[in-house]
């Protein structure tokens, strides 16, 4: 193989790479390939934990979903909400990021369409700033943290004394909120906790799953697709998996091609160069 070609190949214009990425992601969106889906252990455990809750169980869904992470977190959240509706769970929706109330409005509509009664079967808490301190305040005294909700305004809220009354905490976000949930709620009240996260932070959250602190993790678009299959609630997760598969394949191809070119040119240089 020509040495000049290999050197040029290593310094290929990034716009060429960007264009190929675009086409590789675009193709499966219009021509679904139907690749198989293997359920990962973390998603299976998350599904099992939710599925094991008897009807009427109380779940808090804290979400830091935002437009930047919604491509991964929104399909996961919708699948979880639909699963909760199918299993007749009572849910308290709690937006913990400034952008999240807009997404919670959507989940509220899902519950209303399913015949849930707001204030009795589900509840939407107002957004409060504070990050970790908010989780600390919730773990310490939930009712005081949300003291702006008047007593008697909701039967569900009146029936709750604190985080100890929840049968599960599901935290959704691409930041640190899952760790705050563990530190201030799971550790204090032993509330079974699952998390819905972006794929890029799975490696950081995995140790808390292997230690048993998270009952399960739904990670990235693949986690959403797997949860949709398990809960039998088809959605956007599964439809996006072909594009993600092709994207991964393209990145692996670029790594291999770059390394092959690197080793061939390195070998030629060490043997006296290209003659």
């Amino acid at each position: 193989m020509n040495g000049d070609f290999l050197t040029r190949m290593q310094n290929i214009d990034r716009r060429v790479i960007y264009t190929v990425v675009f086409l590789v992601l675009l193709f499966p969106m219009f021509n679904p390939i139907g690749l198989p889906l293997k359920i990962s252990l973390v998603t299976q455990k998350a599904f099992d934990a939710v599925d094991a809750l008897p009807a009427g169980s109380l779940v808090m869904f804290t979400t830091a979903n935002a437009p930047g992470t919604a491509a991964e977190l929104e399909p996961q959240s919708i699948a979880l909400m639909r699963h909760a509706i199918n299993n007749k769970l009572r849910v308290v929706l709690n937006p913990t990021a400034a952008e999240s109330p807009r997404f919670v409005d959507g989940y509220r509509q899902m519950f209303l369409k399913a015949g849930y009664v707001e204030g009795k079967d589900f509840l939407v808490l107002p957004y409060l700033a504070g990050g970790e301190t908010l989780f600390g305040a919730m773990g310490s005294d939930l009712k005081s943290a949300y003291s702006m909700i008047a007593a008697g305004s909701s039967a569900l809220w009146d029936s709750i004394d604190g985080m100890q009354d929840f049968d599960m905490l599901a935290d959704c976000g691409g930041g640190e909120s899952q760790l705050w949930a563990l530190a201030h709620i799971e550790a204090k009240h032993k509330t079974p906790t699952i998390c819905l996260i972006t794929a890029v932070i799975l490696a950081v959250r995995q140790p808390y799953f292997t230690s048993g602190q998270y009952k399960g993790i739904v990670s990235g678009l693949s986690g959403a697709a797997e949860y949709e299959v398990l809960a039998r609630v088809p959605g956007k997760g599964a439809s996006g998996m072909d594009a993600q598969s092709m994207g991964h394949l393209w990145v692996i191809f670029t790594i291999l091609a770059g390394n092959i070119a690197y080793f061939i040119t390195k070998g030629k240089k060490s043997s006296g160069g290209d003659r």
Partner: peptide, 12 residues
């Protein structure tokens, strides 16, 4: 490379 392939359907 293994984790990338193991995380999506095409790897399976």
């Amino acid at each position: 490379v293994i984790v990338m392939l193991g995380s999506v359907g095409i790897g399976y």
